[in-house]
Amino acid sequence: MIEIKNLHKSYPIGKDSLHVLKGIDLHIREGEFVSIMGSSGSGKSTLLNIVGLLDEHDEGDYYLNGQLIKNLNEKKAAILRNKFLGFVFQSFNLISYKTALENVALPLYYKGVSRRERLKTAMEYLDKVGLKDWANHLPSELSGGQKQRVAIARALVTKPKVVLADEPTGALDSTTTDSVMDLLKDINDEGMTVFVITHEEEVAAQTKRVVRLKDGVIISDELTKKATQSA
């Protein structure tokens, strides 16, 4: 599903450049539940942004769903994101003036789905994350955990190949963290590839494979107990 070979990424800082990713090799198959662990500055967010087509890599090859990602213009990247990827962000990134239902339906708008169909599908996914009764509330009227569940519903609504979650629990307390992780696990159980970035061991422990990143290189890549349990 995701295949990365010898990936490099630098950011220019003044005259110098900061070498963030120094040759990453990673292969994630369909249906995996992977977490990337690392302290801040380890390059994990950069990796996710590149995987999510929000940023471009400098060197190396990246295949998404078998397709080589190279020299994408904004338009092509937008189409691929809409088709293959679902995003969950640490800060939720809901549009503040749209209701929960409208936020969930938005990716379908960019996919060209009719309004009636959009709202129907969005309602199904809101129901799935247990927020059907909150469909017509604005994000400001929801709790952090509820917001993140809306964001997850939004990430799932286009039936993407991969869900990318950047610190999905970073802004949540421990109880809501558990409920969000349970939700991601359920999604994975249904066969969806889920790719989580975190710096919390407890969160990583609930995934099936943990990739540890330090200073732009992978230092370990191992399956967790969960994986062996379910296997």
Partner: peptide, 10 residues
């Protein structure tokens, strides 16, 4: 930015 992440074209 959010709209673009969700698939909005420029």
């Amino acid at each position: 930015g959010i709209r673009k992440a969700l698939g909005a074209q420029p």
